[in-house]
């Protein structure tokens, strides 16, 4: 199967996001973009640049908020999250590279709320794959893909950003 090209995906994500922000009348001067480590941060950097937002980019590492500690233990290489703005009362755009089960986003929402009560949280994802395990949907995504069972997609980067298929045993 051929995976879509990154520039086309980013163009599509940006266009859909613009529509969404207009429809919801989001004040872009108050909008903060937050990327989820690692791939989500790369996509967030691109979106932050393209949208030309004044608020600095935030990053979240959801390692301490994962729901599989009892099975997997502590993941390796957790970084400190960095939200260089007040979350309280702000519109937040969460960005990830791929949404599938929705568990990463649940963990990110939990972590985000520990920094304050945002006014509204939106979700953008470069790719959306089937397999949701929670009632969480992106407000904008670059493309929806269907993969064969056992296949995953992985974003590599940051320069250049590339997509590759990973076979899961």
């Amino acid at each position: 199967m051929t995976l879509p090209e990154i520039p086309a995906l980013l163009d599509s994500l940006e266009a859909r996001l613009e529509l969404c922000l207009d429809r919801l009348a989001v004040d872009r001067d108050r909008l903060a973009v937050v990327g989820i480590h690692t791939g989500g941060v790369w996509v967030a950097e691109q979106l932050h640049m393209r949208l030309g937002l004044p608020t600095p980019l935030g990053t979240l590492d959801i390692g301490f908020w994962r729901d599989d500690f009892d099975h997997q233990g502590l993941p390796e290489g957790i970084r400190a999250s960095d939200l260089p703005f007040a979350v309280e009362g702000r519109d937040i755009l969460l960005v990830d590279d791929v949404i599938m089960s929705g568990r990463t986003i649940r963990a990110a929402l939990n972590e985000l709320f520990d920094y304050g009560r945002p006014r509204r949280v939106l979700l953008a994802s470069l790719l959306s794959l089937p397999g949701r395990e929670l009632p969480i949907q992106p407000d904008a995504c670059g493309a929806e893909l269907s993969l064969a069972p056992g296949q995953r997609v992985k974003l590599q980067g940051p320069d250049p950003l590339t997509l590759s298929l990973v076979e899961r045993r």
Partner: peptide, 24 residues
């Protein structure tokens, strides 16, 4: 080094309003 790196990440948690993580 892993202990120090993990602790450094927990230093970040101490800057949030809610200084807790749900790990344990």
């Amino acid at each position: 080094t892993e202990i120090l790196d993990t602790a450094d990440s927990f230093r970040g948690v101490q800057e949030a309003q809610v200084k807790k993580v749900p790990l344990l």
